[in-house]
Design a binder for these strands. Structure first.
Lengths: 151, 151
DNA sequence: GTGCTTGCAAATTCTTTGCAACTTT
DNA sequence: AAAGTTGCAAAGAATTTGCAAGCAC
């Protein structure tokens, strides 16, 4: 049973693919549909399993390639999952968050801004019991800004 | 040239390992040292390369196993890296952030709280030009709370 | 018809596991 | 001496690439 909202998203997504010169094929529609409807983040393998129920001949490679394009068009986001992310940095105690240079990776911690207090309340308004969070800012550090100016 | 701060961290980390019944071995010291000193997040392979410079016989497996224990003791965090995280969820437009159930994955977006305005200022105080951010709250959704109560 | 897309098979890369030898406590 | 740890080799996963056939526009 498809709801209105995901129908609308589907249309929007298909248009976006077309507008960028990508083709709306039937395997792609299956994948778009799964991602539009899902109320939880999915891995490529999970998308693959669901896709095969609707279209048994679909290949895993198509999942990867479609996800790639969807991300390029900002239709989907990659969610932070501890068990997948192998990149590590020393932890701090308590209320600090990370600022990371997207060019060179240089990182610094900054203080929590009393945001954490808000987090619990936000969770509660959705009935969630908040147990943790992850906040990071991505940007360009002073050195990399200089270099791009000189380039 | 080691600075005071990373020396202090090293001591703290070694103590923490000992306190938990883990042994402070020389390969581990090399790895701890690299992670204490690094001013950017590192992948296991990057740690491995740096470790071999100091201790050529060290094995990649040791890196993985040491990172595992360090994470368990909360000495390091896993940083969100788009190129590694394959778990995807539909994107929203604009100022929304994600709330994710750590049990079942159920997710919801919540509004941005005008936090984004602060982000730029925070970045500037470190000389960074902020280009993006990732904020997600982890918690337990209503249904999963019920289930754990019944269990 | 043109050019993007698909699915297969194969190659690559990354991560985990089993085990005998070795260290730390 | 006991128990945790190491590195090797091998197994297992996950992701990417090459290519001929197929499909959308």
């Amino acid at each position: 049973m498809r709801n209105h909202k995901s129908k609308k998203i589907m249309q929007e997504w298909e248009d976006r693919l077309s507008d960028h010169g990508y083709r709306v094929t039937s395997p792609r529609r299956v994948i778009l549909d799964i991602l539009a409807e899902s109320c939880r983040p999915l891995t490529p393998l999970e998308v693959y399993d669901r896709a095969r129920e609707k279209s048994p001949k679909i290949g895993l490679v198509t999942i990867y390639r479609t996800i790639e394009k969807m991300e390029e068009l900002h239709l989907i986001d990659r969610v932070h999952d501890h068990s997948q992310c192998q990149t590590v940095f020393r932890a701090t105690h308590g209320h600090q968050h990370l600022l990371i240079c997207s060019d060179c990776g240089l990182s610094a911690y900054f203080d929590g801004l009393e945001m954490e207090d808000q987090f619990e309340g936000i969770g509660q308004s959705y009935g969630f019991q908040v147990t943790g969070h992850w906040l990071q800012l991505n940007g360009v550090c002073p050195d990399c800004q200089k270099q791009s100016r000189n380039a």
